[in-house]
């Protein structure tokens, strides 16, 4: 066991392991690229949807059930299914990651919108604000902390799951996990897993810190 961990330590710290197209630096960049782009696409879909459902109050049933559907949908199955349907491209990876992230974003945005005090919205309307003004200048800013929580949750899940890109022959940190499993090279497998976990934890802590800094003047 000790030998395994010392091998793991030298794997993670050796200079040759970090450079080149199969190096950690390159794989890390790929992993972040997949994760950020997928989260961005998911935000472009989920945020307007959540805002619309929250603002109009219509489709609340959808917003609530989308979350449990998202939890129940097996990502491994989805990625393989889309892969078999669309062939060798990045589509299966992005479809699966976006499908994973959208429910978290929609439900949290919706939760943030419903948590806005109805009296505040009434006051805004009483001042003559139009529907879209209430949405943009009152509801959105007040719902922002919960929306951010949803984005953070989505990004973390996406980073953790982006390993599947390697399963359908692309890059990212999952490459080490799947190549290592195929080559029975436990050190490489563990190295990949440790790196993914580290990226997820660091991003989560970083975003939590950013969130606390941005909303430091709010009491609730």
């Amino acid at each position: 066991m000790y030998e395994l961990f010392s091998n793991l330590g030298s794997w993670l710290t050796s200079g040759t392991q970090w450079s080149g197209s199969d190096g950690i630096a390159h794989r890390l960049a790929e992993h972040l690229q997949y994760s950020l782009l997928a989260t961005l696409i998911a935000t472009a879909i989920g945020l307007p949807l959540g805002l619309l459902i929250g603002h109009t109050g219509r489709g609340a049933f959808l917003a609530i059930n989308l979350a449990s559907f998202g939890r129940a949908l097996p990502t491994v199955g989805l990625v393989v299914l889309v892969f078999l349907a669309s062939g060798l491209s990045m589509t299966p990876v992005y479809v699966s990651l976006v499908a994973l992230a959208v429910p978290a974003i929609v439900t949290n945005t919706y939760a943030g919108m419903t948590a806005v005090d109805p009296d505040v919205k009434d006051a805004a309307r009483g001042q003559g604000m139009r529907g879209h003004q209430v949405l943009l200048h009152v509801e959105l800013p007040l719902a922002l902390p919960l929306i951010m929580t949803g984005l953070r949750l989505a990004l973390i899940q996406v980073v953790a799951t982006a390993t599947i890109a390697a399963y359908v022959s692309f890059g990212g940190l999952g490459r080490y996990v799947f190549d290592g499993l195929a080559q029975r090279d436990l050190v490489q497998v563990l190295g990949g897993a440790v790196l993914v976990a580290a990226v997820a934890v660091v991003l989560d802590l970083g975003l939590a810190g950013l969130q606390r800094f941005l909303f430091r003047h709010r009491t609730a």
Partner: peptide, 17 residues
């Protein structure tokens, strides 16, 4: 919470030894 951020594939793999 920290345990939850660790990817599931990573947890399975880390348990292999």
């Amino acid at each position: 919470n920290v345990l939850f951020t660790i990817p599931s594939i990573a947890i399975f793999v880390l348990l292999l030894p």
